[in-house]
Write a protein that binds this DNA or RNA. Sequence first.
RNA 1: GGCAUCGUGGCCGAGUGGCUAGGCACAGCUCUGCAAAAGCUUGUACAGCGGUUCGAAUCCGCUCGAUGCCUCCA
Length: 493
Amino acid sequence: MQLYEQHPLKIHNSLGGKKENFKPLKEGYVGMYVCGPTVYSNVHLGNCRTFMSFDMMFRYFRHLGYKVRYVRNITDVGHLENDSDDGEDKIAKKAKLEQIEPMEVVQRYTVDFHNIIKQFNLLPPSIEPTATGHIVEQIEIIKEIIENGYAYVVNGSVYFDVVTFNEKFDYGKLSGRKLEDMMANTRQLTAQSEKRNPQDFALWKKAEEQHIMRWPSPWGDGFPGWHIECTVMSTKYLGRTFDIHGGGMDLKFPHHECEIAQAEASYGKAPVNYWIHTNMLTLNGKKMSKSIGNNVFPHEIFSGDTELLSKAYAPAVVRFFMMQAHYSSILDLSDDALQASEKGYHRLMDAISILEKLETGSKSDFDVQTWRQKCYDAMSDDFNTPILIAHLFDAVKHINQIKEGNEMITEVDLNLLSDTIKAFVYDVLGIAPASEAQGDSNNLDGVLNLLIDLRNEARANKDFQTSDKIRDELVSLGIQLKDGKDGTTFSLN
RNA sequence: GGCAUCGUGGCCGAGUGGCUAGGCACAGCUCUGCAAAAGCUUGUACAGCGGUUCGAAUCCGCUCGAUGCCUCCA
């Protein structure tokens, strides 16, 4: 029996706005697509939060025993700079600015993205397709949409006909908008626009002479519109209808709305059963955004090299900080909040590290079975990581009590406790084990144990000057000694 | 202007029609040579105004405020 049978999962579906019981199309398998980064600049921390949230979901699905195909794309072409007719591709624009090949820009920032994501301990997706690798498929689906009567060609460009589409399908069902309202709220089209209606969006854009990223198509040389790549790459690898589609809240409209429209206009059916949208990470109460410059880069956090922070924070601490908030809530980044998380993180990790040293007894004062169930209940209730973490701290309390000799635990329970807490912290939350995060080494252990011995000798001789010197010097090196009942231990910061 | 989300104790952040999340900070105590760590104890918050209810912070309405989307953005 798989874990997913014992712990049924509920997911908040953005389409409809309700929590629903999760039922995959094929039992035991999950298909999940997440809109990945546009690689024309470094990822900022806000981007990372989204990918981290979906990484956590990916991990929990796997933990539950599902076989998951997780597709996260790389957008390396296609974002129109603006809606005007000379709209050019963001990546191409950046390339011209820096006098290099567009694919060089793509390469540089893709490498940066992978590097950062790895430090945050994200698992690689099953497939990471690129938009430029699927031009042929994009052209094919555009042809289909034209044949079905939901798109029109103007002067080498192809536009999706929202009004015609809306007659048969419902444009706006994901974002809760009505086409009439949208049209009423839009200014009149300028005379020179090619579009029949301001709400129409580009499926294919004609490339002007100076446009360097271009591909031949039945409508002339050009490049694909922003929304079509996701429709193509998701359905190609997951099927025309698949389980989960995720992305940041800011993509709900128009991007995801358009994806639904494109899929329905071509294949005639809804592409996705469960839409999941993660909320924004804010900085000073405002959304992080590349375009307005309100952002923090991960390397600035890791190095502490920013005016926003008083010190550097390890990737695992940042990850723990993010997991303390629900994925669907706005999270505001601040130095105070990170500091609080860092302390909590160390408390949790210290408890895990003393698990092996605990002595077992004849009975348990801690109901591990019930606690374990609560952990699953939290995660299975729309991936409620903050509640899970609250339960983990409940266990921390008991672990410390057992260490102090105030409580007892049986060997069986201790093993279950140990396995469960490690599974949730390491495997599900994706928080790196202490040894990895702290750069463990046996040499260091040996040296520290020697220093601890020397200090304890000094203390025994009441030579507190020496003992305090050892302790204080170590603290300034980031090593904290902890005197307990059963001797002295240390932890690294 | 339209649509959406949200407003919780010093800070961060869950949750919910009645039975006190959690973390951090603060205070007292225990332990300690002194600290740190750990443990124990204390904090009764839910924007405002109405309404529904035996009972609402939780449901409904209004007001105020914040944020997001409506043009590229996770």
